[in-house]
């Protein structure tokens, strides 16, 4: 009895500290997001007086109305949706198809292709030569500049290849006996069975496109084509420049509006988040096991 109690005391002190530390960590990771939401729903007076910390003060939707009336944001939102959908679709198609031959043990030149593919993870030309190729192909100021140069991510391709290899071969075998072509086997057997893996790498592709800002920034010059992240960057950088130059605050994009835009750009991410984080962890583990 006595022993048990002593155990319990030690346990709870340790546990208390542990809980405090981890609650702090969780708070620190989530707080900025809460802050963004709070600001976006608050009125200007409360924001200017620095009254908003956790909950919106003077709750209103003005910032969202302003964002939707601003011509840039809705257009950029549509652009982002278009680029992400098209980009992810092409990524998944390319990976799903390319991983199949690579997963066949006797595929002609398999070793050579695999080495050539893995090498590109360590050796790459960098942004300048890549830019020149995109330019040469006349892809600048088109969607294709965002989609084609990264149509396959090597890590995701290898993850999928490993997944294909781990799948049971018995279905395939009976299809082969029935005389099915490789195309049919891939389309009707392999891809349907690989759905969980495709969902996992699809998530990474989706996040990559949705959050991408550097590629659109260098490949798109026409503001009509800008995705959300570039518009957001423009709001942010130009504001920072103005603030650095100590210009008057009236010239800045209103705080609430900027944060409303941020929140709108996070909505799809937050929506997939509860489902995605399971695949996310799995994807990271698969990626780290490839070696």
């Amino acid at each position: 009895m006595v022993k048990k109690r002593r155990n319990k005391v030690q346990f709870s002190v340790f546990d208390l500290l542990l809980t405090v530390v981890l609650v702090l960590v969780a708070a620190v990771t989530v707080y900025p997001v809460i802050y963004v939401v709070a600001i976006s729903f608050s009125d200007t007076a409360s924001i200017v007086q620095n009254k908003v910390f956790l909950l919106p003060k003077g709750f209103n939707l003005n910032a969202y109305k302003a964002v939707l009336q601003d011509v840039r944001v809705p257009r950029a939102y549509l652009n982002t949706i278009l680029y992400t959908t098209l980009g992810t679709a092409i990524n998944l198609l390319m990976s799903a198809v390319a991983a199949y031959p690579l997963s066949r043990p006797n595929f002609f030149g398999r070793k050579f292709f695999l080495v050539a593919i893995v090498l590109t993870m360590f050796l790459n030309g960098g942004i300048i030569p890549t830019y020149l190729i995109v330019q040469k192909l006349h892809l600048i100021d088109t969607v294709w500049a965002l989609v084609l140069p990264n149509a396959i991510w090597t890590i995701e391709l290898l993850i999928l290849k490993n997944f294909y290899e781990s799948m049971s071969g018995s279905l395939r075998e009976s299809a082969v006996i029935d005389g099915a072509s490789e195309y049919r086997i891939l389309l009707q057997i392999v891809i349907p069975l690989a759905k969980p893996a495709l969902a996992s790498i699809g998530l990474f592709y989706f996040m990559g496109h949705w959050n991408s800002f550097f590629l659109p920034m260098i490949y798109l010059n026409d503001p009509h084509l800008y995705p959300l992240q570039v518009v957001l960057k423009d709001m942010l950088i130009s504001d920072q420049a103005r603030e650095t130059a100590l210009m008057d605050k009236a010239a800045l994009t209103p705080q609430a509006m900027k944060n409303a835009t941020i929140f709108l750009s996070m909505v799809p991410v937050l929506m997939v988040y509860p489902f995605a984080q399971k695949y996310f962890a799995k994807g990271i583990m698969l990626g780290s096991e490839k070696g």
Partner: peptide, 17 residues
């Protein structure tokens, strides 16, 4: 089936090299 992948790597990974 492997051709698109090959084109991609030649053009956008080995091309820049």
């Amino acid at each position: 089936l492997f051709i698109p992948c090959m084109i991609f790597y030649v053009l956008f990974r080995y091309g820049p090299l």
